[in-house]
Simulated scan of single mutants.
Amino acid sequence: MTVWLPVALGRDIEPGAATGTTVDGSSVALWRDAGGTLHAWADRCPHRGMRLSFGFVRDDRLVCLYHGWQFDGDGACRHVPAHPRMEPPGSVRPTRYRAFERGGLVWVSSADPADDTELSRIPSVATPVRSVWIREGREQVVDRLRSFTEDFQDKGTVAVGILDGTAILAGIQVVDAQTTALHLIAPGAVPDDTVRALVRRIHDIRESATAFAPMVAS
């Protein structure tokens, strides 16, 4: 992977929380430490392969749910409960991805260094709207979004346009061949009633397809 890919709205990953996502077909764990710093790792504990996204955050460490191994923000193992006096080997650490937040979106890249050109075109100030998952391939989902949107432009990892009179930007995440996620933001500061209207509209777009992710009330 040589580009940044949108995978979530930043507000949906709170400090002390961990969740899972998909990047280029690979499972990735996203988590924030107590200070709010975002981390993206391969979703596999280097000990026994348990999904790290099933774990929990304790202070500035991600704790594997299986045997309780603790990893700091750099990926180093800092504590093994079964052997509390043992110094964990430095080679035991998960694969790390680059993670960045811009415009209210979480972006992940496995390239190091990743090309930041694309991110520079994302508005630095934006209002998060909603993420939805639609059980259709990318092209079908983009066509649905296009049918609801004026001045629509598909730019690859994002699409932009005017939805009911409001400028929007949708991060497009290909979860798998049959599932696509849209992570919607509105550039600038947008009033709450406009956000609620956009949430209803993105709900309409999702309902026009065979959707499976529940909508959360505003």
Rank of each mutant, 00 (worst) to 15 (best):
S91N: 05
V57S: 05
V80K: 14
F100E: 06
H79Q: 10
L9D: 03
V92P: 09
P113L: 10
V216Y: 05
A99Q: 01
G188L: 08
A111P: 00
T117I: 00
M86A: 15
S110T: 03
S147L: 11
G171K: 10
R32N: 09
V92G: 00
L5T: 10
P128V: 09
A111K: 00
V80H: 11
G75Y: 08
L163C: 08
D204P: 08
L65I: 13
A167P: 15
V92Q: 10
G49S: 01
V125C: 02
T19P: 01
A8V: 01
A181P: 12
D60L: 02
P113R: 08
D33K: 03
G104A: 02
A181K: 12
L163M: 12
F71Y: 15
S109R: 00
D176L: 13
A217Q: 07
V106Q: 04
T149Y: 00
R196Y: 05
W31R: 15
S218F: 02
P123A: 01
A159E: 02
R146G: 04
W69N: 12
A40M: 03
R78A: 08
C45S: 05
R51T: 06
F212M: 01
F212D: 01
T157Y: 00
F148L: 13
R135Q: 08
E87I: 14
V141W: 01
W69V: 15
S109T: 00
R58M: 12
L30N: 09
V190K: 10
D176R: 14
D60G: 06
V195I: 13
D43H: 04
V142D: 02
Q153T: 14
A159L: 03
